[in-house]
Simulated scan of single mutants.
Amino acid sequence: MKFVIVFACLFAIVLANEEANVLKNEWEVNPENFYYTLELDNHIRAEQKGNLEGKDTWIVTGEYEHLTPEGKTVKVTYKADETGYHPHVDTVL
């Protein structure tokens, strides 16, 4: 369920950038794991993968990045598991 929330957030980013062209869009969805990657020509990139552990516990890892209006790259890496969503944010000049 948590990966659905993260995917929805990334989908909102894409919709907000309707003029961007898709450079890369790959995905694979299986009952016990999934993977997707998305890259746009406006410096937005996202990648996520998840594995079902046990009966109903998803372990999801991923990252996304975008370019701010000031020209800085913001990169968020994260892990979502039974204990919650754990992001780490880096800003690079």
Rank of each mutant, 00 (worst) to 15 (best):
T73C: 13
E18K: 05
V4C: 11
A20H: 05
F3V: 04
E39K: 11
L93R: 02
D41F: 15
H43R: 11
W58I: 01
G84L: 00
T73F: 12
E47Y: 02
E53P: 00
N17H: 07
V60N: 00
W27E: 12
A12H: 11
L40A: 08
F11V: 09
G62L: 04
D90P: 02
T61K: 15
L67W: 10
D90T: 12
A16N: 11
E65D: 10
N33P: 05
N17I: 02
V60G: 01
G50L: 03
E47M: 10
F3A: 02
L40D: 00
F3L: 06
I59F: 07
F11Y: 11
L10D: 14
Y64T: 08
T68R: 04
Y35M: 06
K2W: 12
P31F: 13
Y85T: 06
L93V: 02
P69Y: 12
H43C: 15
K49T: 10
T37Q: 10
G84R: 03
K75M: 15
H66S: 06
Y78F: 13
V6C: 09
E18G: 11
E70S: 00
K24G: 01
A80T: 05
I59R: 05
K55C: 07
Q48P: 00
P31A: 15
T68A: 06
P69T: 07
D81I: 07
W27N: 13
Y78R: 06
F3M: 08
L10M: 12
P87Y: 02
L10W: 06
G84E: 06
A8K: 11
H66T: 09
T37C: 07
E39H: 09
L93C: 09
T83Y: 09
F7S: 13
V4T: 15
E19L: 09
A12M: 12
K72I: 01
N30Y: 02
L93H: 05
D41I: 10
T57K: 13
N25G: 07
F34A: 04
